[in-house]
């Protein structure tokens, strides 16, 4: 098991040498990630890992990718997507131009989910979806629009549960193990690296998704990131978080109103 001081050493190495700051990540989870990295890359000891990190800059991308969690799916929590379909999209439709930010979107499953929703509401043509993540390697996947075919059954069920009326398979071409999603879905995506810890607000949006990212941060960092979202959200814009995340105890809470029926969607009221 990794010791506290070993974790501190790795954190300071990644920060000093490479500018990736994990200081305010939630420790319990980060520790698990480091233990997992030690296991999958078969380091005989922590010292070997730190040596590799110090001496091999090419290894860094892999470290960052493994320390962060890149688990995501299309239309995860279908009830939430149903609510976006039914309550959020009609409001967004009144705007001449729609800007959506998927912060910490990993491999982009949710960005494609949103693009499908916008397409079905006939809004995609006037929308832009900004997809950002701190991992340069995972966002490459968004540009490709290729996802494992093995997931499509589950995604199709999620899609239908979210109120989707079409045949989900019309959105992709199956090729061997992969499903390649329609080019027109990604035509409105802007993909870039952005680190929520260190980078600033870069635009104003009507809708921000950040689902199951804040759980990896401690309270201080959560509050900072929520402030960043607040700075990046238009008045009456929407903020969407993960199923077990909440803004209740954050400084921005008083400016926001949660939509009814428990889904984690808040509207900026002032």
């Amino acid at each position: 098991m990794l010791k506290e001081e070993e974790l501190d050493l790795l954190i300071s190495e990644l920060s000093d040498q490479y500018g990736y700051d994990f200081t305010n990540y939630a420790r319990a989870s980060l520790k698990r990630r480091v233990n997992r990295l030690l296991l999958i890359d078969r380091f005989p000891s922590f010292a070997e890992l730190i040596y590799r990190v110090k001496t091999d800059p090419a290894y860094l991308t892999h470290v960052v990718q493994e320390l962060t969690v890149n688990v995501t799916e299309m239309f995860r929590d279908p009830a939430l997507w149903k609510m976006i379909r039914e309550q959020v999209l009609p409001v967004l439709a009144t705007h001449p131009f729609i800007r959506v930010w998927h912060a910490g979107c990993s491999t982009g499953e949710e960005v494609y989910s949103m693009a499908i929703l916008l397409e079905e509401a006939n809004l995609l043509h006037k929308s832009l979806l900004y997809a950002t993540d701190l991992n340069p390697s995972v966002i490459e996947n968004i540009k490709k629009g290729i996802f494992p075919i093995s997931q499509m059954k589950e995604y199709s069920e999620n899609y239908i549960a979210s109120g989707g009326k079409k045949d989900f398979s019309q959105y992709y071409m199956a090729k061997y193990e992969w499903a390649k999603f329609d080019e027109r879905l990604k035509s409105k995506m802007i993909v870039a690296t952005h680190n929520l810890v260190s980078d600033r607000s870069f635009n104003e949006f009507q809708l921000i998704f950040c689902r199951n990212v804040l759980i990896y941060f401690d309270k201080t960092l959560q509050d900072n990131v929520l402030n960043l979202f607040d700075d990046s959200l238009e008045k009456l814009g929407y903020l969407v978080l993960g199923a077990k995340e909440n803004i209740r105890f954050s400084p921005i809470a008083k400016k926001y109103l949660q939509l009814q029926n428990r889904e984690k969607i808040w509207r900026k009221m002032q």
Binding site: A26, S29, N212, I215, Y216
Partner: peptide, 15 residues
């Protein structure tokens, strides 16, 4: 479900 420290929990949606 993880225990972050004696004071509270944290969640993790990893593999």
């Amino acid at each position: 479900l993880l225990v972050e420290n004696e004071a509270g929990f944290s969640l993790d949606s990893s593999e």
